[in-house]
């Protein structure tokens, strides 16, 4: 269980997060939506202590994430926009191994995790491929595998679908469905709900640093245009 309590964060003169309270149970598939500048990215970067709040707390199973960032970052895997800038190695397997190596695991365990993570995104055959030679959709899946190799309970994806063509988009989403079905919590940050709203359990909308909507996606869709989000059915 991730619990966010009255989270506040200022950047310059702007209240980017203005008292966000939210709890996300294990295994939930949650969409976090909002227009640009609504605080989505800032919010998720607090979940694994990449940012430190000005006030309020984030806990994972009762532990404050700022007290133990290693546990927070292991339990909450994060995939960012621009996958090309988050790879640390030139080849797929070497990149996916980076997280487990940082945890100091032994080579046998690292290899096992890399194999498992690559299988989960159907890239088992691409282990030795050069990342730059892969398509955008495959690169997004390598980035997901890099997070999965930490064996997280939650996977947070910040705009993972930007720039992907339709088949690549479907493929990434199908893999997320499979992970969610296996019990991994999935949190997708996006301003584009196409193909997503039918897959998720819950939709949380942010506006000017506050939660303005929190409902199952089917019930939330009619309200979205008022919040500056396109209704994915149109």
């Amino acid at each position: 269980m991730i619990e966010v309590s009255d989270l506040r964060y200022r950047y310059g003169d702007v209240d980017v997060l203005d008292g966000v309270t939210l709890s996300i149970p294990d295994g939930q598939y949650c969409l976090l939506v909002g227009p640009n500048g609504s605080g989505k990215t800032t919010l998720v970067r607090h979940l694994n202590a990449l940012l430190t709040p000005d006030a309020g707390t984030v806990t994972v199973d009762g532990t404050d994430v700022t007290d133990d960032p290693v546990v927070a970052r292991t339990r909450i895997g994060m995939v960012f926009q621009h996958p090309r800038d988050q790879f640390v190695a030139a080849t797929v397997a070497a990149d996916v191994a980076f997280g487990p190596e940082n945890l100091g695991l032994d080579r046998v365990e690292i290899d096992r995790r890399v194999d498992t993570a690559l299988d989960a995104v159907d890239l088992g055959d691409a282990a030795e491929s050069r990342i730059d030679a892969l398509s955008g959709g495959e690169q997004a899946r390598v980035a997901i595998a890099g997070a999965l190799a930490m064996e997280p309970d939650y996977l947070v994806l910040d705009e993972p679908l930007v720039g992907l063509d339709w088949p690549a988009r479907q493929s990434v989403l199908d893999h997320l469905d499979a992970l969610a079905a296996d019990g991994t919590g999935v949190i997708v940050v996006t301003h584009d709900l196409r193909d997503l709203h039918e897959r998720a359990d819950r939709l949380v909308a942010l506006h000017e640093g506050q939660v303005v909507l929190d409902a199952p996606p089917a019930e939330a869709l009619d309200t979205l245009p008022d919040l500056g989000i396109r209704d994915p059915r149109c």
Binding site: R73, M78, F80, D85, N102
Partner: peptide, 23 residues
């Protein structure tokens, strides 16, 4: 800009002083 994105990604993946060394 790439440096900013890379540093966030490294931190999210527990960039540590004492990792398992390459074989």
């Amino acid at each position: 800009d790439r440096s900013d994105r890379l540093s966030v990604a490294l931190r999210a993946r527990c960039f540590a002083w004492n990792p398992t060394l390459p074989p």
